[in-house]
């Protein structure tokens, strides 16, 4: 589905990916800025969420400041891709899981309270799938994520 955004939706998405109002009634503040009521704004955001355009209003946490995480990759035979992806998905610690076009074709992020927790999940995925998991933990992050510019 490609999103047909109204100009109002586009403005909300462009302006509030960062610096979300930190005050008791943030949605009321945003509504005032874009010229609608708080109720209409909440409805618009709920609607964007139902259409899967918006994941959530939330915090992007700097890697390695809270808990531990890693990027992991697997070489999965094509005919097992869906089955293995489902096993990987079944772990609550997995938050992103993508197919990529490469011999290492399944890529996912594992997040846990500590490093041992991450290693345990990777080991368990290896056990349950019989496939090797390549562990690519972050060494350095060079980019501050400022959100996504809709005007590209």
């Amino acid at each position: 589905m490609s999103a047909d955004l109204s100009s109002l939706e586009e403005k909300i998405l462009n302006d509030y990916q960062r610096d979300f109002p930190l005050e008791p009634r943030p949605y009321d503040r945003i509504a005032g800025c874009v010229g609608i009521t708080e109720e209409e704004l909440l409805e618009t955001l709920g609607n964007l969420q139902n259409r899967n355009v918006v994941s959530r209003v939330g915090a992007v946490v700097k890697p390695q400041t809270v808990g531990a995480s890693t990027l992991a990759a697997m070489k999965v035979p094509k005919n097992r891709l869906r089955e293995v992806a489902e096993i990987v998905n079944s772990f609550e610690a997995v938050n992103h899981n993508y197919e990529r076009e490469h011999s290492l074709n399944l890529w996912f992020v594992v997040t846990a309270p500590d490093e041992q927790g991450v290693k345990d999940v990777l080991k368990e995925i290896e056990n349950q799938t019989g496939l090797k998991v390549i562990d690519l933990p972050l060494v350095t992050s060079f980019h501050i994520d400022l959100g996504f510019d809709l005007k590209w």
């Binding site: 490609s2 501050i144 996504f148």
Partner: peptide
């Protein structure tokens, strides 16, 4: 800086 960004998190794919 623990939270790099606080706001609306969009899904790129659904935005085209």
């Amino acid at each position: 800086g623990v939270v790099k960004r606080f706001g609306v998190i969009v899904r790129h794919r659904e935005l085209g």
